[in-house]
Design a protein around this nucleic acid. Structure first.
Lengths: 143, 143
DNA sequence: TATTGTTATACTCTATAACTATA
DNA sequence: TATAGTTATAGAGTATAACAATA
C-alpha cells in the first residue's frame, strides 16, 4: 500500500527490535538461516556468540553455551569446517585453545543479525504515527 | 508498583497474545513445559496440535508435523505412554489408525496453552492506557 | 499394484567417561 | 595431582528403506 520513507524503515526496525528484545529469543527463521550456512541451529547459536577480535577458550565456551566440553569440540569442528572460526594457541598456557571468528564468520554473523532484526511485512506496513506510538509504549518495558 | 485490576489483566493477556501471535512461535518455556509432562519438545508440539474430538490419521499427522511417518509412530507412542493420546481404528479402512487426545491430554494441552498466553511481568506492569494503546495499534497487524 | 503404518537401520546432535598433554 | 581439550562411546530424536496388512 503506502511506501516507506527511510525514516519509517528505521522506525520499523527499531519497533521490531523492541518486540524481539522483549521476547529474548526469536528462534523461528533460525533453523533455516543455519541451514543456509551449512550449520545446525546449535552451531549457528555458537557462531553468534563469537567475535573476530575477542578470543575465548574452549572451556569458557562450554560455560557460555551451557553444554559439555566435548560438544564444544564438536561444534567448533563444524565452524572450522565451514571456515567460520578457527582455533588458536594460547600465548602462555599450551593446554588451552582459543577460538575466534574468521572474516567469513564475522560477515555471516552480521548478516544473520541483520536478518533477525528485519521487521516483518506487517510491521513495515504501519504508518509513522503507529510506529511512533509503539516505540513509545514498548520502550517502557525496558524498565 | 500499581496493582492490576481484573480488566487490566485481561488486557495484558490480550496484548501479549497479539505479540506472540505475530511471532508465530515462542519456543522458550516450551522445553521446560514439555519436560514437566514427561515429553520432549517435539512430542509436546504434537500434543498441542491434537484434539479430543477430531481424529487424525497417522499420515495426516505426518503432513501436519512435517516429519516422516516413522517419526509419527514414535511420537504417538510417546503420547500413548504418557496417557495423553490413543490410537483408534478407522471405521471403514482397516489400514488406517487415527489419533485423539485422552481427557488427560486435552487438559494438559489447555494448561500449556494458558501458560504460553500468560503475559510476562513487564507487560503486566503497564497501565491500562498503555495496554489499550498497544492493543489498538497491534490489532492493525492482523490485516 | 498402491497405500498405511510399523519395524529395522542409520545419521545427527548431545552427553558421560576414558585418555593425552600440559601445568 | 589437577586442568584443558580430545577421543571413545552411548543415548535421544530424526530420517530412509524394507516390510506386513489391507485396499
Amino acid at each position: 500500500m503506502a511506501t516507506s520513507t527511510p525514516a519509517d524503515t528505521d522506525l520499523a526496525t527499531e519497533v521490531w527490535r523492541l518486540i524481539t528484545d522483549l521476547l529474548m529469543e526469536r528462534k523461528e527463521q533460525f533453523p533455516a538461516l543455519a541451514a543456509g550456512l551449512g550449520l545446525n541451529p546449535g552451531a549457528l547459536h555458537a557462531l553468534m556468540s563469537l567475535d573476530e577480535s575477542e578470543a575465548r577458550s574452549m572451556s569458557a565456551l562450554a560455560g557460555d553455551w551451557k553444554c559439555d566440553a566435548s560438544n564444544v569440540t564438536w561444534l567448533v569442528d563444524r565452524l572450522e569446517e565451514g571456515g567460520y572460526a578457527r582455533r588458536r594457541m594460547h600465548p602462555t598456557d599450551r593446554r588451552v585453545r582459543t577460538v575466534v571468528l574468521t572474516p567469513k564468520g564475522a560477515k555471516a554473523r552480521s548478516q544473520v543479525e541483520a536478518k533477525l532484526h528485519e521487521p516483518p511485512e506487517s510491521i513495515r506496513r504501519l504508518d509513522r504515527e503507529d510506529l511512533e506510538t509503539l516505540r513509545q509504549v514498548l520502550s517502557k518495558l525496558h524498565a
